[in-house]
Design a protein around this nucleic acid. Structure first.
Lengths: 229, 229
DNA sequence: GCCTGTGAACCTTTTCACAGCA
DNA sequence: TGCTGTGAAAAGGTTCACAGGC
């Protein structure tokens, strides 16, 4: 294994942006990019791009820029995208359904190879070209299909148990879409996407733009508290 | 308007977590919480909770903790959740469909009041209790329904144009789900959710766990619990 | 005694600015 | 000359540790 440099988390989170920008660039048969151009495509600034890439190695050429294909290869290796990562989705509701059909996953090597739901009525139904399987089959599914990454798309109330079962079944990375805090053993990686939280953050800044009651929507009663799924 | 303290971005991003934790706490008829308990529920540490809340004001009582209802009110006011924010979703594909039906939005005061698609075949169809409208109707929709927040759920290729049209129509906050960089005028707030990028970040860390391809996913003996959310 | 509120220390991340090399 | 690579400075965020009030 290569020297295993310590790459800052913030940098890791941006590598996929560079990766995507480089794919676009390669599609247009452009051979080299400057940090400035790459920054523009990735929506960050040039100094950051150079600093980030410097953690991977000295892959650029002074006075010229970065070789697109070469950098693409380095980043995809770093991100582990040179291999496929079969994933399983637990929870085939609205969101699970959409995720199962989302082509962006497969396009990056994340093939959905299992759909699982706790509801017996859903088990056996087809979604895309997959048949929904039972929650109890998770261990078998994970082992047989060599699945390392699980996606939780259940209601909040089921998320912790599902995460536990995924870990039990052998999954060691989890992406949680359920609007609740989930805890996993330290050796398991966990990331979350919370749709309502993103809107609440926007709301914070939006509110500061419309200083007081004159502009903002007045219709509908003051928001009541209710549980999200 | 109150003194308008400067609340750090990192804190703003955590307020929704506290908000959710407090809702759960209130549901259980608990009257006060300590920073430690709140930290546990929100998946952060106690010092952070205290520091974050201190930016809002001195709302706790030493030796006691925070009054749940009172803090809930303060945070919801800070986040702008005391009013409703009607939203419009542009792009009624898989994801737009799921988002339109996602109950978590409405539950937090983000009612979906418009569905828009560029495809004439989709215009006029019903999704939930909304009829899909044409892209050209955006200005009217935004004005009539007093919409400040737009959600982009189109393919990457359409995202920038859609964002431009949303801004043109008067929207000043955008949540982008399209896997591409979108730019907007500085006075418009923009947040993004990229599903494939989250998986790529997991892939980075996952890869480092299984040094090379052969290793079966280690059946981890649950040791320490990791911080979540 | 207990738990908040907060300066101060510490760590991470970003930005600057320029040396170094093609 | 042009653009990378990187020390150094600045900014931002987290954690510590304890004073302060209930």
């Amino acid at each position: 294994m290569a020297a295993a440099r310590r790459i800052p988390e913030a940098t890791v989170a941006r590598l996929p942006l560079y990766y995507r920008a480089l794919l676009d660039t390669a599609d247009q048969h452009v051979a080299t990019v400057s940090s400035e151009r790459l920054a523009e495509l990735a929506g960050v600034n040039a100094a950051k791009v150079r600093k980030d890439l410097s953690y991977l190695g000295s892959y650029g050429t002074r006075g010229v820029g970065y070789d697109v294909e070469f950098l693409l290869h380095q980043i995809s290796r770093e991100l582990g995208l040179t291999q496929d990562w079969p994933v399983v989705i637990v929870g085939v509701g609205n969101l699970g359904h959409a995720l199962a059909n989302y082509r962006g996953f497969g396009a990056r090597g994340f093939q959905v190879e299992g759909l699982v739901d706790a509801d017996p009525k859903k088990v056996g139904t087809k979604v895309g070209n997959l048949v929904v399987e039972a929650l109890d089959d998770l261990p078998r599914i994970v082992e047989e299909r060599k699945i390392a990454i699980g996606i939780v798309a259940t209601p909040a109330s089921a998320a912790q148990e599902v995460a536990d079962r995924l870990v039990q079944a052998g999954v060691s990375s989890i992406l949680n879409f359920a609007p609740t805090v989930v805890t996993v053993p330290t050796e398991v990686s966990l990331r979350k996407v919370d749709l309502a939280i993103e809107l609440q953050i926007l709301s914070f800044y939006q509110q500061r733009k419309t200083p007081n009651g004159d502009g903002p929507p007045a219709h509908a009663a003051p928001s009541k508290r209710a549980r999200a799924t």
